[in-house]
Write a protein that binds this DNA or RNA. Structure first.
Lengths: 123, 123
DNA sequence: TATAAAATGATAATTATTATCAATTTATGG
DNA sequence: CCATAAATTGATAATAATTATCATTTTATA
């Protein structure tokens, strides 16, 4: 993977952002300072970094994919009202992959847990 | 919700099917015996039954939504090679909603766990 | 610094899904 | 049992999210 200015600013936007944005959201932010950037470049780089393990894709929250700069094991909660995404600590489901391997014998390469409901502000 | 012949055959197809099909897959099966059925009818009825709690939507497996006639709490594993979807017993993550509520205070209305990797046949 | 590989922006194409709407089917109150 | 309203259908248009294409530009390196 070669260096690219665009990838750098996409990563920085993701990292300094409090939310767990979609590609579209990052694109909207970047457009203000970098009006020439293309939405395809944003998608391309986010997926490229996700493949390389630099960031993570969060699927199953909404129809669109969200991205997360935090690659440590943790889970997500999406508020059904305000649609904000919150981190949930990994210790709510200890050894879940080992347990599942013990039960099934499947080679488990990853897992994802997503909660939904109402956050503190919305409930 | 009124009775409809189409909803009945869609539900029966889902119930008697070993897999966790997508709307498209159900549509392809149904077309053989019911060539006039519309794909929109399949989507409409699956989502309608999911809203009513009669079946469940499984999101986060692939780009398309899968449906499940088993509404009891359980999780899913998708094989990265053959794309088959397997059930995982709920007891791998006991009291996960209570634990998450205790940590966050959020009102939790549901959660989903999806694993991926290689199944017994593919690994 | 010439060259090959990688990345970009613009945009077309694709995929999954939902919306629209006239016609048909279903439920029910008289 | 039928008239009526509400629900549902099939056909298809529309939308939303994402990926593919491709000529041009940028980056790494011999």
């Amino acid at each position: 993977m070669n260096y690219s200015k665009q990838r750098e600013i996409i990563y920085n936007t993701l990292k300094t952002n409090v939310v767990h944005p979609t590609a579209e959201y990052i694109y909207e932010i970047l457009k203000k300072r970098h009006p020439n950037i293309s939405l395809a470049t944003v998608y391309r780089n986010l997926n490229q970094m996700a493949s390389a393990g630099i960031i993570k894709r969060i699927e199953g929250l909404e129809s669109s994919v969200h991205y997360d700069h935090n690659t440590h094991e943790h889970y997500h909660f999406i508020c059904d009202k305000c649609k904000k995404v919150f981190d949930i600590d990994a210790d709510i489901a200890p050894d879940i992959e080992d347990k599942t391997f013990a039960k099934t014998g499947f080679a488990i390469l990853g897992h994802e847990i997503t909660f939904h409901g109402f956050c503190a502000d919305c409930k």
